[in-house]
Design a protein around this nucleic acid. Structure first.
Lengths: 148, 148
DNA sequence: TATTGTTATACTCTATAACTATA
DNA sequence: TATAGTTATAGAGTATAACAATA
């Protein structure tokens, strides 16, 4: 079995483990990714977020709906162009980002438990090299994108 | 962003790329994994295959149906216990395994294009260490398993 | 007429539960 | 009564297309 298979195998495993962990905050991985995107570019339009994540705008509506109902994000109308909805984190959303960060660090540590600090650094370098070569957007999970 | 995120990011990317490639053989990744499992343990019952892959037996029925209709596998009744269906590759199925191997090698090479042979070896060692520690079954994709 | 966001609809994949046949 | 396999049904997640508001 090739290394790329090991990569998908471990990637799926890590994704499943993260889904379980983040579920304790009542979040799904797509919701978490969207929160991260909003935190990184506050006030973006839904179109811009859809573009960044590589997903249909229609999917964003439902995702934003869910987060808005829980008071984690809010849509603000732009007075200059009333078609746009600028999406922002609320205070509760900002506070939740800290929890997400903690969960992510714990997840990272659990997945890489078998490696010592030097090995982790080496792994990070190798994966970073591959990710850059493959054209992956830093911080954006490719699970939003439709394959074709 | 932690290394585990890089891992899920790259794992998903590699899985998507593999799905595209293997689609050229008119196969889905789950079908490919099942073919591999059957090749590795010919004559297994569907229950045994379901157990190995970590998936409900009901899901196997549909998967085997699809492969059987294409003449890639066949169900053989066991005369001693007529409840069991031993699943085998046909000649066409065996031939297809060679094509799958070629696709997998090409995929591997494309994903790891950024790394030289030494780096690939090093990556393989590190990933193998993590996979063993995380209790992953060699050759079995965790995508079959239900998360809870 | 073009663009942002929304709603309605359909499709794919998978799981749960009920059913058939063999033991 | 228990087990292997199957069929029927329902649910989650996502995409496609039609629609409303604004420019």
């Amino acid at each position: 079995m090739g290394s790329a298979f090991l990569l998908t195998q471990l990637g799926t495993h890590a994704a499943q483990a993260f889904a379980r962990r983040i579920g304790e905050l009542d979040l799904t991985p797509p919701q978490t990714g969207l929160l991260r995107a909003i935190a990184g570019a506050p006030g973006s339009s839904q179109q811009a977020l859809a573009e960044l994540l590589g997903t249909p705008a229609t999917r964003l509506v439902a995702l934003v709906d869910g987060l808005e109902q829980r008071g984690l994000v809010e849509r603000r109308r732009n007075p200059n162009d009333r078609r746009l909805h600028a999406v922002h984190l609320t205070d509760a959303g900002t506070a939740l980002m800290a929890d997400i960060g903690r969960v992510a660090r714990a997840h990272d540590d659990a997945v890489l438990a078998a490696l010592d600090p030097d090995e982790r650094t080496r792994l990070r370098e190798l994966l970073g090299k591959v990710a850059a070569d493959q054209g992956l957007t830093p911080g954006v999970h490719p699970g939003y994108k439709t394959l074709r």
